[in-house]
């Protein structure tokens, strides 16, 4: 009927990027540390580091989201598991439940290891709490594998949710496609492996973990390669796709933060460093730790730029999210896209 307007969204910004980044990273860390402990080798320190860090990450991410809610009391509706019956189509509802039960099950899985550890028992309040929950620790050990799997399944739901959340918005071409959950899932596991590699090299640092570290590095190389492939698909999709996608392309592929920050130093450079590590090896841990830090920074940048470049197609300029006078001004610039 008339010209269309293409405007980036400004509702969900860095705070949702932080939530998605920490959510994906933490949940994937739970999966990797629990699965490694169950199926590769018993590694209590890895579980402690992985699951407790994940708990902290999910707590921070959820807190950032909670702070930005309009009505903090109404959050009770989304914490109630029965909400899945009334809002089964909402990925935020599923995601909240996945996060909640993942945090609970991963903590119960980790509890016996905390109770064994003199470090945790010595901390004043935590030591007292650990003592009071001795029964839960014994129960956890009795069903340890089952609880581990519960943590893995709910964490897998959390990882997938971070991508499906964006996919559920139909009017943004960049988000509303099945490659988004795939990219976010690959990125979540890659960042989690990077985080656990830093833990294994810097904080645990045991020679007997050499095989586990090598396995993580090899897996991370594959995951980064998968990410690069999906990013290439997005380049094709946005550059030669529908108008809203082209508007996203104009933002992404002209921004040094995306090109150099995410693709360059977040994917390609760590890929080359880790590839060299798994083929020829490094004399020390510094290159791998450096690559892992770059992967972590890249993981945040991916989500930051995906939110930044979400462009809406509308038959009129937005007024409710942009002040009117600004919106009418934006219209003049945006007409060039239509």
């Amino acid at each position: 009927m008339e010209d269309m307007f293409y405007q980036p969204q400004i509702i969900w910004t860095w705070w949702i990027a932080t939530y998605l980044f920490l959510g994906g990273l933490g949940a994937a860390a739970v999966i990797i540390s629990c699965a490694s402990n169950i199926y590769i080798k018993e590694h209590k320190e890895l579980v402690l580091w992985g699951n407790l860090s994940a708990f902290a990450m999910l707590s921070i991410g959820s807190l950032v989201l909670f702070i930005h809610l309009l009505d903090h009391i109404a959050v009770i509706h989304v914490l109630n598991p029965l909400g899945l019956l009334t809002s089964p189509e909402s990925w935020i509802m599923w995601g909240t439940q996945f996060i909640l039960w993942m945090m609970i099950s991963s903590m119960i899985y980790t509890l016996p290891y905390m109770q064994e550890s003199t470090f945790w028992r010595k901390i004043p309040i935590i030591g007292m709490i650990l003592g009071k929950f001795g029964w839960l620790g014994r129960l956890s050990l009795k069903f340890h594998k089952l609880i581990g799997w519960l943590a893995i399944i709910t964490a897998a739901g959390t990882v997938l949710y971070t991508g499906l959340l964006l996919q559920s918005f139909p009017s943004v071409a960049l988000w509303n496609n099945p490659s988004v959950p795939l990219l976010f899932t690959a990125s979540a596991f890659s960042t989690a492996l990077a985080f656990l590699l830093i833990v294994l090299y810097v904080f645990i640092n045991r020679e007997e973990d050499h095989a586990l570290r090598t396995f993580y590095e090899r897996t991370d190389v594959i995951l980064i390669a998968v990410e690069l492939l999906i990013v290439f698909l997005f380049f094709q999709y946005t550059t030669y796709g529908q108008e809203s996608a082209r508007a996203s392309a104009a933002i992404l592929w002209d921004d040094m933060g995306w090109l150099v920050g995410f693709i360059g130093f977040g994917l390609i450079v760590p890929f080359l460093i880790e590839f060299r590590g798994v083929t020829k090896g490094w004399n020390n841990a510094v290159p791998i730790v450096l690559a892992a830090i770059m992967v972590l920074c890249g993981g945040y940048l991916l989500r930051h730029y995906f939110l930044l470049a979400g462009v809406y197609e509308r038959p009129y300029p937005a007024v409710n999210i942009i002040h009117h006078s600004e919106a009418e001004q934006v219209k003049l610039d945006d007409l060039t896209l239509s």
Binding site: Q9, I11, A74, V78, S90, P170, R314, A318, N320
Partner: peptide, 15 residues
Amino acid sequence: RCMGCRACAMACPYD
């Protein structure tokens, strides 16, 4: 019941 997460604002194509 609304907690104000703004997912609806993100999903709405009509602003």
